[in-house]
């Protein structure tokens, strides 16, 4: 099964736990969630423990990611949106670290599980809905009624707005999930070609060079995708949170 490109997404139990007939086992996916959290939190915690005025390399990276997300959120949702900074920062760091950890061979990619990305997307949209109604009450529904639309078109526009709002958690989760899944499968398939072609003898070894080059290139691309998807997830989170902060346009 070594060359099965799907095998890397296989979940296996490490510590079986069952509560009330539901399987809550500690699996390899759970292990890598914990590892993701441990890596991200450990890095941020220890790199900033010195609190130096002139930062070292690690502290610079921590500060850069902080300011990166802070600027993103400020531009996306204004200064009122800054109360969501811990959430957006946590989401970005979690997704980024999970994506990057997934790049190690034999490591499990947490974000390649639809349930994980869907849960994170629901968290975002749930936050938008709960905060929107809590802060603005029924005025939050103005979000679905853009101003300056002629009366005849209004029902259609509102329907479109509602559908687009409801499709947000799906698009947000599927985008991340599908990118990670497809990237890892492609990488695995091309890497599998190298091994199987290499086993065919001299001609095969010559032919294996092409998929090898592809694998190297794809690895670079996957690192880009790993960062880009975390970035996109954070940017969209900021945009959606903007709706919760300013439901009646900008």
């Amino acid at each position: 099964m070594a060359n099965d490109p799907i095998h890397q997404f296989q979940i296996s139990k490490i510590v079986p736990i069952e509560i009330g007939g539901i399987d809550f086992s500690f699996t390899n996916a759970s292990l890598f969630m914990v590892a993701t959290v441990a890596c991200a939190a450990g890095f941020l915690y220890f790199s900033t423990s010195q609190r130096s005025v002139v930062p070292g390399r690690a502290q610079s990276v921590a500060e850069m990611s902080y300011e990166f997300i802070a600027n993103m959120l400020r531009e996306g949702a204004g200064s009122h949106g800054m109360k969501f900074f811990p959430l957006v920062f946590s989401l970005f760091m979690f997704v980024l670290t999970a994506n990057l950890l997934g790049m190690f061979p034999y490591f499990f990619t947490v974000t390649s599980q639809i349930i994980v990305t869907f849960a994170l997307a629901l968290l975002v949209v749930g936050t938008v809905i709960v905060y929107g109604f809590y802060k603005h009450g029924l005025h939050f529904l103005k979000l679905f009624v853009p101003s300056g639309v002629p009366g005849a078109l209004l029902p259609l526009v509102v329907a479109i707005e509602v559908i687009s709002f409801l499709s947000r958690p799906i698009s947000l989760s599927v985008r991340l999930f599908a990118n990670m899944l497809a990237g890892h499968i492609t990488l695995k398939v091309f890497a599998g070609f190298v091994g199987s072609l290499g086993a065919l003898g001299a001609l095969g070894i010559g032919g294996a060079i092409l998929p090898l080059i592809m694998t190297v290139a794809l690895t670079g691309l996957e690192f880009l995708v790993a960062f880009l998807q975390a970035y996109v997830f954070a940017v969209l989170t900021c945009m959606y949170l903007n709706d919760a902060v300013h439901p009646g346009g900008h």
Binding site: D23, A40, F94, I115, V116
Partner: peptide
């Protein structure tokens, strides 16, 4: 493993948050 993944995601991401 949806239930298990959700539980451990809530635990790990909650702690992280």
């Amino acid at each position: 493993y949806f239930a298990s993944q959700l539980l451990w995601l809530i635990i790990s991401f909650g702690l992280f948050y």
